[in-house]
Nucleic acid binder design. Sequence first.
DNA 1: AAATTTTTGATTTACGTACATCAGAAATGG
DNA 2: CCATTTCTGATGTACGTAAATCAAAAATTT
Lengths: 341, 341
Amino acid sequence: MRPTVHDIAAAAGVSLATVDRVLNQRPGVRLVTREKVEEAIRQIGYIRDVAAANLAKGRVYPLVFIVPTGDNSFMHGLRFEVNQAILRASIERTDIRVVEVPAFDVPALVAALDALQGQDIAGVALVATDAPEVRAAVGRLVSERIPVVTLVSDLTDSARHHYAGIDNIAAGRTAARLLGRFLGGHDGDITVLAGSMLVRDHRERLQGFSAVMAQEFPKLRLLPVLEGRDDPERTQSLISRALSENKNIIGIYSLGAGNRGLIAALKAVRPERELTVVVHELTQHTRTALLDGTIDAVLNQDAGHEVRSAIRVMKATADGQAVIADQERIRLDIFLKDNLP
Amino acid sequence: MRPTVHDIAAAAGVSLATVDRVLNQRPGVRLVTREKVEEAIRQIGYIRDVAAANLAKGRVYPLVFIVPTGDNSFMHGLRFEVNQAILRASIERTDIRVVEVPAFDVPALVAALDALQGQDIAGVALVATDAPEVRAAVGRLVSERIPVVTLVSDLTDSARHHYAGIDNIAAGRTAARLLGRFLGGHDGDITVLAGSMLVRDHRERLQGFSAVMAQEFPKLRLLPVLEGRDDPERTQSLISRALSENKNIIGIYSLGAGNRGLIAALKAVRPERELTVVVHELTQHTRTALLDGTIDAVLNQDAGHEVRSAIRVMKATADGQAVIADQERIRLDIFLKDNLP
DNA sequence: AAATTTTTGATTTACGTACATCAGAAATGG
DNA sequence: CCATTTCTGATGTACGTAAATCAAAAATTT
C-alpha cells in the first residue's frame, strides 16, 4: 500500500495537522519541524494522491483556449477538438473557455491575454502570433504563476511552459526530402505555396524546406514563394498562372492552408502535366486528393492530440506535477495514400 | 456543479441506499423502483465520479502484460516501456505484472493465459501469436469478463476487446510506395528481408508490400523473401550474398527486426552500390543508419504509446467506460533523416 | 517569571462514492 | 389476515486529502 499523510505523521513524529501545513505550505511551522517532515516524506517516498486531493479541494481546472478566428479547415478542426474537450470537461474536472481573436491581430491577442491577469485560471493555451508584445504578455501571465502553453504555433524565447505543436523546421525539411526523392534525379522547378509569410510556422517550414532543397537536391530550383492568403480562389489563380507560364514546374510544396484552390488548379492540368505535390494538413479535400493521386503526400499535425496534450500539460503544470515528456511530443504525421487513418 | 448520487436520490424520490443499489447492481430493488432511479439518472445526466469511486473502493487495477522473451531491440523497447509504466503504477492505481513467454511458443502462451483464469485481474495485454489455441484461450478470459488487449500483434477473429498496435498491411503498403517512389521509374529487383514468416505482423506487412508493388510499380520485381530470424549474423550473410549474386537489386525492404546485420552488410557495399532501403523499427542502429544515409526511411510503431494506450483501454474496459477512439489509434510513424525525434 | 507570541496537536467536517447493517415498510404467500 | 419474504430507508464508516477550529505546549519577549 502506498504511504499516506498518516504515515508521514507517524514517521516524523508530528501530528496530521502539521503534515498538512507542510504539504500545503501553510504558515505556522518551525523550520526544524518542517525539515523533519520533509525528510520523512522523502524517506517513505510519499506521493500525494492527486485524485483524493482534488476531491477534497473540489478542484476544477479553469482553462482558457485562445484561438484565432478564420475559416481555414485546420483552425476549424482545432476548434472542433477544443469543443470535444469541453464535452469531456466535467469528467476531467476542467472548465474550458474559448476566446476567439482575429488571426494575426497582435493587439487583440495581447488584450485577450492581459484580460486573464488576476483571474482564477489554471492554465492558458494560445495559438501564438510571434511578436514581442505577445511575448511580453505571456511573460506577465507566467509571472503570475499561470501555466501557459503555446498551441500549434510557438513563441520564440518566451517564458511559456510548453509548446504543443510540431517542429515546423523539421516539417519543411521532411517535405523537401519527400519531394526531392519522389522526383528522382529529375531536373526542374519547384513552387512553394504559403498562406502568408507573416506566420512563424510558415516561415519555419519554408526555412527547413529551402535548406534541404539547396543542400541535397541542387537540380531542383525553388521559385519565389506564392502567398495564397488561405484564400482558395486566389490560390487557384496563382497556381494556374504559375503552371501555365512555367512549363518547368515539376513539384509543388504547399505549406499552409487553402489547399482547396490548389487541388482545383491541379485537377485542371492533371492528365497532361506530371506534378509531384506535397501539402500540409489532412482535411476532407486533401484526403480525397491523396486517394485519387492529385497529391502525393500530406504532412499533418493532429489537432486532437495537440488539444489533449495541452490540457494534460496545463493541469500537470498547475499542480506542479511532472509530465511524460515522450507522451507529449507532438509528432509530424506523414500520410501517403496507403496509411490514411 | 455536476450532479451527485444525492441528486439522483432527490430526483427519484428514493433513498441514497436505493440509488447505490441500482448504481452498483446490487439485489433488493423492485423493477419499478429501479426504473424510476434509472430514469432519474438519465434525466439529470449523472456521471459517476470515477476518481471518488476508486478512492472509496480502494480500487487498484491488477494488469498483466504477456510479452515474448527474445532479444531483438523492439521487444527490448517494449519491455522497457512496460517497466516505465510500472514506475508510474502507484500513481495510476495499477499493479502491473509482466509474464515472459518464449516467442512463437503457442502452448506456453496458452498456458500463461489460462493461468490467469479465476484470478482477480483487471486486464490482460498480450503480444499475440496468431493461432487457434491462442484465440480460444483469449475467448476463455473474455468470457470470464476479463478485458483483453492485443499488443503489437493482433489476433484475427478473436474476442479481444482492443488491439493496441499499427495496421501492418497499411505499413507494408506504405513501405512499398515509399520505396517505389524513391526509386523513380527505375528498373530492378527488390529484396524483402523478414524475421520469420510465421509471425502474423510480418506476413501482413509483406502482403501489403507485395500488393502495392505489383499494382503500382511493375518495373520493380520482388525477389523471394529472405528470413533472417532476427539474427544479425545470419541476416548479414544473407544480404551480403544476395547483393553479390544479384547486381540488379536496387531496393531493400526489411520488415522485421535484426536490422543490425542488414546495416553491416550495407556498409560493406556502400559507396559503390546504390541502394534504397526502407526498414521497420527505430532503434539506435537504424537511427544512426538513417542519419548517415545507409538507409532511407524507417517505419516505426511507438512502443511507449502502445503500452500506455493498452493500459488506458484495459482500465476503461474494466470500468465499462468509453475510450477516446482517436486517442487510442496507434499511428505508423514514418521517419526520414529530417524528422527524427 | 510573567506575559506574549509562535508552534503544534487533536479533532471535526467535507469531497463523492462504496458498502454494510438494521429496522421498518411494502408486497406476497397461504 | 397473519406470517413470511422482499424491498426500502436511515445511518454510519471508509477511502486519502484539505481545511478549519480551538486548546495546549513551546518558544520568545519583556
